[in-house]
Computed example of a mutant assay.
Amino acid sequence: MTEIDFTGLYSAHRLPLVRLVVLLVDDIGTAEDVVQEAFTALHQNRHRLRDPDAALAYLRATAVNNARSVLRKRQTARRHLRLARVENAAPADSELLLAAAHQQVLAAVRQLPPRQREVLALRYWANLSEAEIAQALSISRGAVKSNASRGMDKLETILGDAR
């Protein structure tokens, strides 16, 4: 059995995974934590991985699932603590991350349902194929196609209204 090159995997894919997850959780610090937890899970479960070439797919799926968990925990905390927070408020460092034109698109993406947002982030931000997205989200390729289509239609509507 071939060993996983954790150093190479971490060096090559940590930052792209953080960029992907920040689109899902809207917070760089949380995104970094989510990705770190994915790498930790991979290391802890490395003996269960039959094919070392599947390590990146495992990391993506784990990162997306961890991001979902973070979002569920946030929702629960908000519901129970009744936090008064403007949902569409931009993170304090968003201007450093994106140009003004990109902020409008990101704001529109945040309005999408979670599954459409995940599919579009994996497709257009992480440049994954339909099969890779289906694997990462544990859904069918048909579901990937329909969520991508619906998400793009909704983005077109939202961005068309904003102009």
Results as ranks from 00 to 15, higher is better:
V21K: 01
L122R: 02
A134T: 11
A55R: 06
A126P: 00
D27K: 00
Q104F: 05
P52A: 08
E95W: 10
L9D: 12
A92E: 11
A134V: 11
R14Q: 10
R115Q: 13
F6G: 01
L98T: 07
W125L: 13
P114S: 09
Q36A: 04
R78A: 08
G8P: 07
Q104P: 01
R60D: 07
A162I: 07
D161T: 11
N147M: 00
Q36M: 01
R115D: 10
L23C: 08
R115G: 00
D161C: 07
G8F: 08
R123D: 10
N66A: 14
L20Q: 07
D153S: 14
V144T: 12
Y10D: 04
Q116L: 02
Q103H: 06
V105A: 12
V18F: 08
S146P: 01
L23F: 13
L122M: 10
M1S: 11
A148T: 06
G8E: 09
L42M: 02
L49H: 12
R50E: 14
G8Q: 09
Q135A: 13
I158D: 12
A121D: 04
Q111W: 00
R19W: 09
A54Y: 10
Y124C: 03
D51I: 05
R150F: 06
Q116T: 05
L81T: 06
L42D: 04
R60C: 00
R150Q: 13
T2P: 07
T30N: 00
S69Y: 06
R14I: 01
V70P: 01
V70T: 13
